[in-house]
Design a binder for these strands. Structure first.
Length: 475
DNA sequence: ATGTTC
């Protein structure tokens, strides 16, 4: 991205100046100059396109890890006011609805665990179904799917996957309201029958990590983190069901936009007014998919515990938090001094409520919401805490963010060589797809350290801990 | 991201 066309407002905040006659909202890009320079021009173009959508409030924004996505940039945040013709967009949520990260903290130290990492890697690889279309041993029927879409992680706990303590540390306590299973097609539901408790593919993973560095002692204490501690992070989403909903509603919302005469700067921005029948229908289906993803991560949490207990008999894994980073949520935010109910699209962006937010579990309320920046394979991840100040409608970065396409990565790296290289660095990879590993090469991503640093400098969230990967089951 | 070109 060429920075000449931008105006720098702060060290980590940039804007695209408006032409006088132009009727669009502001465009705000969070990040350092080097991160922005490394981004494709498409990111700016897409963020500017979003600023033209009806009812956008404040600004169309991008996080420091942004990259080119379908319609909206990944790492994009935009809020809409239903009362002002605001829209809901499939591309603003993403196809992997409620993709996110479940983070578990353990009572194991690196010293305890390291001698058995090989065995742990094999056991987790065996216990966690991963790969495109891969099904697990758990089969559910369509009636049960409807219950899952309604009850989210609560359904999983009720059926023996994990415990009620987990629920307190999931966004919305594991279940979002206003899910409408009837708005989800039978095909979407059928695709999901064998995919509950599966990891999926692409950038999804299960990683065993060690807390290598603490940045904020008070927040680390609240989050139950200390140096040398073993954590497990599970990155996955709503699998076939969410993807099928995205595919179907892309068409439905495109037709609605055309029927209502909404002019789209890019056809990939298919959207409908929040108040329209199609908009409401999608919101009901999307919420159902969020519950599906929350249930999926809850089941995976259980499978992870069972696998770990085979190796470490006294191991305990508590849910630190579960963040979603592909959602649209109705939230109240203060705009020009007045509270307003807004539909906040976060696509490849994490909700990051600051200290004192009433939605946070009591244990974390003083320090802010745990935010996870999942790094690329083998580089490391960060846990942060939401900052006060409510910047970007309380949002933060979600990962390292791609720096090159999957295609480019395939041309440049070989999966087998990467696995060997990472093993030399003490990182054990288990995968069914060497092609997937090549696509996910660490070099195909931005530097996660720079993303985390910029996230903090931009005032979006503050760093609490750095996690070093040890074992990675790759989707 | 995705029963990876229904």
């Amino acid at each position: 991205m060429n920075l000449q066309q931008l105006h720098q407002l702060e060290p980590c905040l940039w804007t695209l100046p408006r032409a006088t006659a132009e009727k669009r909202a502001e465009v705000l890009l969070y990040g350092t100059a080097p991160l922005l320079v490394s981004m494709d021009d498409k990111v700016l173009e897409q963020a500017a396109n979003v600023a033209f959508l009806p009812g956008v409030v404040g600004a169309s924004m991008t996080m420091p890890d942004a990259h080119w996505g379908y319609g909206f940039p990944i790492g994009g945040v935009a809020a809409f006011d239903a009362g002002q013709g605001g829209v809901i967009s499939v591309g603003g949520v993403g196809f992997d609805i409620s993709c996110g990260i479940r983070c578990l903290r353990s009572n194991l130290s690196l010293q305890d665990a390291a001698p058995r990492f090989n065995e742990l890697a094999d056991t987790l690889f065996h216990a966690i179904p991963a790969g495109v279309g891969e099904e697990g041993e758990i089969k559910v029927n369509l009636t049960q799917i409807d219950q899952i879409l309604q009850e989210g992680a609560n359904w999983a706990v009720k059926h023996g996957y994990g415990n009620t303590a987990d629920l307190e540390y999931i966004e919305e306590h594991g279940r979002v309201a206003d899910a409408v299973p009837d708005n989800v097609s039978e095909l979407a539901k059928k695709r999901q029958r064998g995919e509950m408790g599966t990891l999926g593919s692409g950038n999804h993973y299960l990683e065993v990590q060690m807390v290598e560095r603490i940045y904020d002692a008070a927040a680390a204490l609240a989050f139950g983190l200390h140096e040398g501690q073993i954590l497990i992070s599970i990155h996955c989403g709503s699998r076939g069901l969410g993807h099928q909903i995205g595919t179907e509603y892309m068409l439905i919302l495109a037709k609605a936009a055309s029927r209502l005469g909404i002019r789209l700067p890019d056809r990939e921005l298919a959207c409908a007014p929040i108040k329209s029948p199609e908009g409401q229908q999608y919101i009901g289906a999307m919420n159902a998919a969020i519950n599906c993803a929350l249930a999926n991560r809850q089941i995976l949490t259980h499978l992870t515990r069972v696998a770990c207990e085979k190796i470490f008999r006294d191991a305990e894994f508590e849910t630190l938090f579960d963040v979603s980073h592909n959602t649209c949520k109705a939230e109240t935010h203060e705009v020009d001094g007045k509270p307003r109910l807004l539909h906040v699209h976060r696509k490849g962006a994490t909700r990051a409520f600051g200290p004192g937010h009433p939605a946070l579990p009591e244990r974390y309320r003083k320090v802010g919401q745990p935010v996870v920046i999942g790094g690329s394979m083998g580089t490391g991840s960060y846990i942060l805490a939401g900052s006060s100040g409510n910047r970007a409608f309380a949002s933060a970065s979600h990962g390292a963010g791609r720096a090159m396409s999957r295609h480019q990565a395939l041309a440049r790296w070989k999966g087998r060589a990467l696995v060997d290289e990472l093993a030399q660095q003490g990182i054990l990879i288990r995968t069914r797809s060497m092609r997937g590993v090549a696509e996910e090469a660490p070099g195909a991503y931005k530097d996660v350290d720079l993303v985390a640093e910029a996230t903090e400098q931009a005032g979006l969230a503050r760093r609490v801990a750095f996690l070093r990967p040890k074992v990675c089951v790759k989707g």
